[in-house]
Amino acid sequence: MIELVNICKYYQTGPVTIKALDGVGMNIKNGEMVAIIGPSGSGKSTLMNMLGCLDVPTDGQYFLDSKEVSKLDEDDLADIRNKKLGFVFQSFNLLARLTALENVELPLIYQGMGAVERRERAAKALELVGLSDRLEHTPTELSGGQQQRVAIARALAGDPPVILADEPTGNLDSRSGLEIMEILKGLHRDGKTVILITHDLQIAGQAGRVIRMHDGRIVHDGEVA
């Protein structure tokens, strides 16, 4: 359960104050699939960083499972990112020197999980995205679609309730994009909360709910429009 109350994020550039977020309020229930759309500069990335606990708001409150996270310090935020959130990025962001399996193990390492259990969980996550035969491959040996699937497996490994995907299909061809969307929809069906940023209206249409941003404000929130 995510609840934002009047979230503001201001940046000071010289004498000019940029209002990246200007009073955003919303609720996202557990198990929802939400697409956030909007032109570039509309504040959707800032909102994503806020939801992902990578950034703290200038003003306003953010409750995650009724716990106010906007007041937490850096280490507690790291803990929440580790246990409650899974990130999927546009550019995959895998570590090039590690194998697929080791990449998926990373969040579990920071949870302090033992080596055997970690390996098991990571392998299972990779199986879920259909990459059981690519465990020992490094990212450069995988196609874009496969890399993104490894990234999803990494986001899933720690079994977080919320998956945050920032333009997950942006760097992929349309077929791989479709595959990734199928996986994300599958996660939604399994009960995860999936929040994705996109500017592709067709992809946004696959989510049950669309939030449109403009100039740091929500201008539309509801069924696919």
């Binding site: 992902g52 990578l54 850096e74 280490d75 790291a78 803990d79 990112r81 580790n82 246990k83 990130f87 962001n93 895998l94 570590l95 990373l106 969040p107 920071y110 949870q111 990494r154 720690g158």
Partner: peptide
Amino acid sequence: TREIGIRKAIGAKRRD
């Protein structure tokens, strides 16, 4: 730097 960013995003603390 990017690796550090990734590690932090998936839950690495400062001390890690």
